[in-house]
Amino acid sequence: MNKITLDHGSGGKLTLELIETVFKAKNGLDSAIIEDIAFTTDSHSINPLFFKGGNIGKLSVSGTVNDLLCVGARPLYLSSAFIIEAGFDMEKLEKIVESMTKEAENANVKIVCGDTKVVENGKCDGVYINTSGIGKIIKPIDGQGVKDKDVVIVSGTVGDHGFAILNERENLNLSSSLKSDVSNLTHLLVPLIESELDIKFIRDPTRGGLAMCLNELCYNRDFGVEIYEEGIPTREDVRVMSEILGIEPYYSANEGKVVIVSSKEDADKALHILKQSELGKNAAIIGKITKDNPKKVVLHTKFDTKRILKMPIADKMPRIC
């Protein structure tokens, strides 16, 4: 008998199949656009709840805010629903809520409603948080206009969140300075969306990382993506951890980065806008859209060899967001 496995929640190919076959959703988009409103929802279960760079509270606000931004909306209102395990420390809960409030203020959104459920001890890992959000569309961005020769930009170093969590959870002690990049991207993205630039696609490469995000970009489309290893910003400690653990940074989650596709003409200007923000200081052009390899993501290595960056089937690091 078929059973749900952790892999079905990995954000990879199996998640996509679950959404298509069981939930029967034709497009597995994170956010819906309804007239001039964007609507999204996201549940968060992370181990550990508190980590370098943030906690589940900050994550639950920024994740939903970022999903709204990705469809070209200005995030406005959030709901928050808690599932809490009996016996959970009140002080920890207060810290989580404090982080949510702070992150919401920073993102200029209001948390306007919520719900609380408590389950028996042992029935959930401390706390799970669901947030839903609505925003007002500034300019709808749905990836439909992406075409040959468009340019692919990433807003900063890739893989930080996944490796930071792994480093902490497994007590690897491989880096002392690495922290999660979890952050809302309101101040990075609103100026870009409000600009006159031809921005065709924005997506936050969370679970499954850059590889999943780029594969989704060209999933069932008549174009593919070409990226250049040397241009992809990565932290040195992430590269070292990647070597040791055998997990490439391209498959590791991010919680404060976006992949952007713009027209060729506007790419440099888009990069310029991103670099104005502290959150986008390491932004870089990493590749382009191509007709040469439809539906596929081709990675050009620094040795000028090529290989295909597959859609991850399942995450090598479960429960990281």
């Binding site: 490439e248 060899t305 290989r307």
Partner: peptide, 12 residues
């Protein structure tokens, strides 16, 4: 084999 595929060594 993992390294050979990952680095595209056969192409070299």
């Amino acid at each position: 084999e993992n390294s050979i595929v990952r680095y595209g060594i056969r192409d070299l």
